[in-house]
Simulated scan of single mutants.
Amino acid sequence: MSGAERVNGAAPATALVVGPAGHGVTGTALAQAAALRALAPGTVLLHLDGAPSAAELLGALGAAPPGPLLVHVTDRLFGRTPEEAADVIADLARRRRLVLTLHDLPQASDGPRNAARRAAAYRRMAEAAAAVVVASAHEARLLAACGADVAVDVVPLPVPDLRDAPAADPAAAPTGVAVLGYLYPGKGHEDVLAALDALPDGAGLLAWGRPSAGHEDLAEALAAQARALGRPCTVSGWIPDARLPELLRSAVLPVAPHAHVSASGSVNAWIGAGRRPLVARSDYAAELLARSPGCVRVYDDLRTALAGAWADPVGTWLPDGYRASPTVADTAALLLPVLARAAA
């Protein structure tokens, strides 16, 4: 029996998905699992909401058929510490052949202590797996920098279709500057607030998301910074998926200011809504443009970029009919040969 046959029938792959559906990594994993089931109907989905214990994860394997186990991993979903997450994944790998899709790769912006701890954990997880997937060539380099001597497949994050809401007039005066996604140190919200002095009085920050776990103080810190600068600032909290198209297609300036991004679901959400967000120059931004030319506006100076976009907001919209890649079905198709190799 070939590996491909096993993935598509006799020994199907199992997608083990951990975490609440509202988490970006979990949501991507669930969407991809659904697409895999359409391509390979024998694919099994096991979704454990919340933060399951190692025992609960191992217990769930009793419901999984033989075959490779596909797991999307960010360390924070699998343990209270990077070390605990690596222990859990290593334990899974002793029982099943793992295809690990790694997210949130460690990098210097994690800080010296956390970067070293997370690098050691990601190296352990990668070396325990039968196959490793990352979402960008930049992430592949970050994994190599962790000391992981493994082959890596790059399967980009999917671009969702979020155009099922009416679009604002592209030439309409912006109502604010919007940053989508979790609030965490280094995401760039503070940089946007500091750059608002390039815009007319009254222009403010719309932070569409909630603070990540352990960083609940950031909402008040942003509010205090905004008060000191005399600028409006709104932190929305969690946004249901159903509201995203309406928000992303409203008359705001879309900005993704994270300078150390290595893969971004929030940037893809802007693109999927027909927007052309302002993004800081990075290796990842270059990858996006190589794959989907014109999908983002890269900037070197945020103040200059904001002032230009405020004066000409049309440039923050993609042309009608623009289709960025890959779709979630595309990413599932890219995973099939990886799963087949792991099954062989």
Rank of each mutant, 00 (worst) to 15 (best):
M1H: 06
M1V: 02
P12S: 01
A15G: 04
A21S: 15
G24P: 04
V25W: 00
G27T: 10
L30E: 02
A31T: 08
T43Y: 07
L45V: 14
L48K: 08
A55P: 03
A55S: 14
L58V: 15
L58W: 06
H72I: 05
F78K: 02
P82L: 09
L100K: 11
P106A: 08
S109N: 13
R117W: 05
M125E: 10
A126Y: 12
E127M: 14
E127H: 13
V132N: 03
V132I: 00
V133S: 09
S136L: 00
S136I: 00
S136M: 00
R141S: 07
A145W: 03
G147I: 00
D149L: 12
V154L: 10
V155M: 10
P156H: 06
P160C: 01
D161N: 04
L162T: 00
R163T: 04
A172F: 12
Y182R: 14
P185K: 04
K187A: 05
K187G: 06
D191H: 14
D197S: 10
A198E: 12
P200E: 08
A203P: 02
A203F: 04
P211R: 05
A213M: 12
H215N: 13
L218V: 05
A221K: 06
L222K: 04
G230D: 06
V235C: 12
L248S: 05
L253Y: 04
S264M: 05
S266A: 15
V267S: 15
V267P: 15
I271G: 14
G274Y: 11
R275K: 14
A280W: 06
Y284T: 02
E287L: 04
L288A: 05
L289R: 09
P293C: 05
C295K: 06
Y299P: 06
D300M: 11
D301N: 13
R303Q: 10
A309V: 01
G315A: 13
Y322D: 06
A329E: 12
T331C: 15
A333E: 12
L334D: 12
